[in-house]
Nucleic acid binder design. Structure first.
Length: 423
RNA sequence: AGAGGAGUGGCAGAGUGGUCGAAUGCGGCAGUCUUGAAAACUGUUGUACCGCGAGGUACCGGGGGUUCGAAUCCCUCCUCCUCUGCCA
């Protein structure tokens, strides 16, 4: 979330940023936050003064008791009861003001970077780069959902029986190419300087709040209610929460971590005819990269992450484009997001396979992730990106590389999976 | 899962109702000494919020309670350790 200090000191900038995002009632919301904060500060001042007085009296009583002046002590005790009632009331007021402020701040998204274009929807995103040729397919080319049944490498029906829609079984070469992709992505990330992590794939409530998945996107996560744990929608959640309530030393920076995990998404309400086959799943695998950076370095780090994803896609020889998301399409917590889309030739569709974002201090503020500068604590910047999500990569490999006698496995993957063709 | 024990500052560790945000040691930082370093000595060393400032308030695993006053007593949850059981 945004810090109230920032909003208080930069109300116009805040309103302007929110308007780029088409945030409704920006000016009113900002004013409301400032008012609640004003109230909160006044209440705390009063409460502190009351408690200070009570502490003073308690000390006096202690002294009198020791001196044996019991009656005098009793007299002062009587005075404290008023203070107690007063402080209880003020405490309640303070708590409710803090709660109110926090709940309001949770509804305010991050401010976009100056390069973010205005816009309402995906159509207003700005294509900034593209690479590769859109392959000319042969006559009988088929979409990936037909190819996977033809070669029997992924089984949706079986998934339906055992788990439900969106939980497929990968079989034989299907499973092996998945494993090859995971190893390839991890090796690439390690070569780019990331430390490999195997995090838990369930997280508690506090972690959900830390990355902003709670409360806003509550319905998107699977919730194991018996133990009040959530299945992760992305490795970003455990990887970023590693640094919750942490003050990093200079020598620990920059932080660069990567992990392969399954990701679980309920995708409530977003199911439809347009999402066939591997285009959208409830469970999928992804390799994620996360960085924690000093503020002045974070945009260079974002570019570095973009270059990393570019090189991975180019090694896989998949045609792709990069979009700079507009204010209306950008994630709630992001300041600047680049989406990577690969072209899936038989569907004739661009598929999003990576989203690389700089959150600036937005996540760090919820996480309380800081470092020291000249003896003062300062919020750090967090960034993350997919490198990459598997199912759509697989979909475009299957479609783009199909031939009359099978599917060509990209060269870089062959040493990982041990075969050259799916047939 | 059952029985018992324990959670204090970066680490170790004292503190069992008031003068304790907390002894002491180690570590860190600054200084003295030294050509430089080490050693020794001196000082300093948690976080957040309120306040222009002086200063104030809160925090001793989390939450709640008793009390004029809680690190200290009570309740509850969490985590760790030991023993027993179970298990990939």
């Amino acid at each position: 979330m945004l810090t109230i200090q920032f909003i208080r000191e930069n109300p116009e900038t805040t309103v302007k940023g929110l308007e780029t995002r088409n945030f409704k009632n920006a000016a009113e919301t900002v004013q409301q936050a400032i008012d609640i904060d004003q109230n909160r500060r006044e209440t705390q001042g009063e409460l502190d003064a009351t408690l200070a007085e009570a502490n003073q009296l308690a000390k006096e009583i202690g002294g009198l008791m020791k001196a044996g002046k019991r009656d005098e002590a009793e007299g002062i005790k009587a005075k404290t009861s008023d203070l107690k009632v007063k402080s209880k009331g003020l405490e309640e007021q303070l708590r409710s003001a803090e709660e109110e402020l926090k709940n309001l701040l949770y509804t305010i998204p991050n401010l976009p970077h100056e390069s973010v274009p205005k816009g309402k929807s995906a159509e207003d995103n700005e294509e900034i780069f593209s690479w590769g040729e859109i392959p000319a397919l042969y006559e009988n080319a088929a979409p990936h959902w037909d190819l996977i049944s033809k070669y029997d490498i992924i089984d949706f029906e079986l998934g339906n029986k055992v788990s439900g829609a969106g939980f497929p079984f990968y079989k034989g070469k299907g499973a092996r190419i998945q494993r090859a992709l995971i190893n390839f992505f991890l090796d690439e990330a390690i070569a780019a300087g990331y430390t490999e992590i195997q995090p838990p794939i369930v997280i508690n409530e506090a972690s959900g709040y830390g990355t902003g998945n709670l409360p806003d996107k509550e319905g998107q996560m699977y919730h194991a209610t018996a133990d009040d744990l959530y299945l992760i929608p992305t490795a970003e959640v455990p990887l970023t929460n590693m640094f919750r309530d942490v003050i990093l030393d200079e020598k620990d920076l920059p932080v660069k971590v990567t992990a392969h995990t399954p990701c679980f998404r309920r995708e409530a309400g977003s199911w439809g005819a347009h999402v066939r086959g591997l285009n959208r799943l409830h469970q999928f695998d992804k390799v994620e990269v996360v960085q924690v950076r000093k503020p002045e370095e974070s945009y260079a780090a974002l570019e570095e992450m973009v270059e990393h994803v570019k090189s991975v896609l180019e090694k896989l020889e998949l045609p792709y484009r990069i979009l700079r998301l507009c204010g209306g399409d950008m994630g709630f917590t992001s300041a600047l997001t680049y989406d990577f889309e690969v072209y899936s030739a038989a569907q004739k569709m661009w598929l999003e396979v990576s989203s690389v974002s700089n959150f600036e201090t937005y996540q760090a503020n919820r996480l309380m992730l800081r470092h020291k500068v000249d003896g003062k604590t300062q919020l750090l910047h967090t960034l993350n990106g997919s490198a990459l999500a598997l199912p759509r990569i697989l979909a475009s490999i299957l479609e783009n590389n199909q031939t009359a006698d099978g599917i060509d496995v990209p060269k870089v993957l062959q040493r990982f999976c041990g075969f050259e063709k799916i047939n």
